[in-house]
Amino acid sequence: MIGRISGKLVHKRPPEILVDVGGVGYEVQVPLTTLFQLPEPGADITLVTHHAVREDAHTLYGFIEPSDRELFRLLIKVSNVGPKLALTILSGLESDAFVRCVQREEVSTLVALPGVGRKTAERLVMEMRDKLRDWQSAPGEISAPCEAGSMPRPGAIIADAEGALVALGYKPTEAAKMVAAVNDDSVADSEELIRRALRSVVSA
């Protein structure tokens, strides 16, 4: 099984990145909380990974923080929660925020995430509450790096943000409304727009 991957970041398009390891390109699915911490393409990165094996596919899921991978593995053990939904949950909420929601039984916040209905949210609380009782937060706060670069076209920023939200499970019309509600002249790139859109949903 593949537990870690180190190499050069080739490209990133939510929720997938491509990492070149010795001339071999690995496609890795990552939550947005990890994507926002990654440098620009061309830089070297290291991720801890979860290697999911099915009859029809081998999929790598990558994380900056080992604690995020630990939570991902706990999530996919919950009834009716597969890797795709687990990735969506970790994209919409940072790990510590999700743990707090479960510990405080804040079902309404979980329901705001795409693909998480009330029954699923209640199941997450019921099945994970005891497992997360002694959760240790990762050191430091997760934040996106601010790096200079060429300014993308406004239309491309919106399209990328909407595409990322659709990939996470939102309907195209929902994604368009979420992006339109938080888009203004201060948005520098699609990652910032995605982050704002997700925050607006879980804080509503």
Rank of each mutant, 00 (worst) to 15 (best):
M1S: 11
G3N: 10
R4M: 06
I5E: 03
I5C: 02
G7P: 06
L9K: 05
H11M: 08
H11I: 06
H11W: 13
P15F: 05
P15I: 04
I17E: 04
I17W: 08
L18S: 07
L18K: 06
V19P: 01
V19T: 02
D20R: 09
G22T: 05
V24F: 14
G25F: 04
Y26I: 03
E27K: 13
V28A: 03
V30P: 01
V30H: 00
L32G: 14
L35F: 14
Q37H: 00
Q37A: 00
Q37G: 01
L38Q: 02
E40D: 12
P41M: 01
G42V: 04
A43P: 00
A43H: 08
I45C: 00
T46I: 05
L47N: 03
V48Q: 01
V48I: 04
H51M: 11
V53G: 02
E55Y: 00
D56V: 04
A57R: 00
H58R: 08
F63H: 00
I64F: 13
I64V: 15
I64Q: 09
I64N: 05
P66L: 08
D68M: 12
D68N: 10
D68R: 08
R69E: 06
R69P: 04
E70T: 13
E70V: 10
R73P: 00
R73C: 04
L74M: 09
L74E: 02
L75Y: 13
K77T: 14
K77V: 09
S79H: 13
S79W: 06
G82W: 14
G82A: 11
P83Q: 03
L85P: 03
A86K: 11
L87K: 07
I89M: 13
G92C: 15
L93S: 02
E94K: 09
E94C: 03
D96M: 02
A97G: 05
A97E: 15
V99Q: 10
V102P: 01
V102M: 01
Q103R: 14
R104L: 14
E105I: 03
E106Q: 10
L110V: 02
V111I: 12
V111F: 04
A112Y: 06
P114G: 04
V116E: 03
G117V: 07
R118G: 03
T120Y: 06
R123M: 05
R123V: 10
D130Q: 14
D130A: 13
L132M: 07
D134W: 05
Q136P: 02
Q136E: 11
G140F: 09
E141Q: 11
I142C: 01
I142Y: 05
S143R: 15
C146P: 12
E147L: 14
S150L: 12
P152L: 01
P154S: 01
G155S: 08
A156D: 15
D160R: 06
D160Q: 10
A161V: 02
G163S: 04
V166P: 03
A167V: 07
K171F: 14
T173W: 07
E174H: 11
E174C: 09
E174M: 09
E174R: 11
A181V: 09
V182S: 02
D184I: 09
D184S: 08
S186R: 13
A188L: 15
A188M: 15
D189Y: 07
S190C: 12
I194M: 13
A197Q: 09
A197D: 08
A197M: 09
A197H: 11
S200Q: 14
V201W: 11
V201S: 10
V201I: 14
V202H: 13
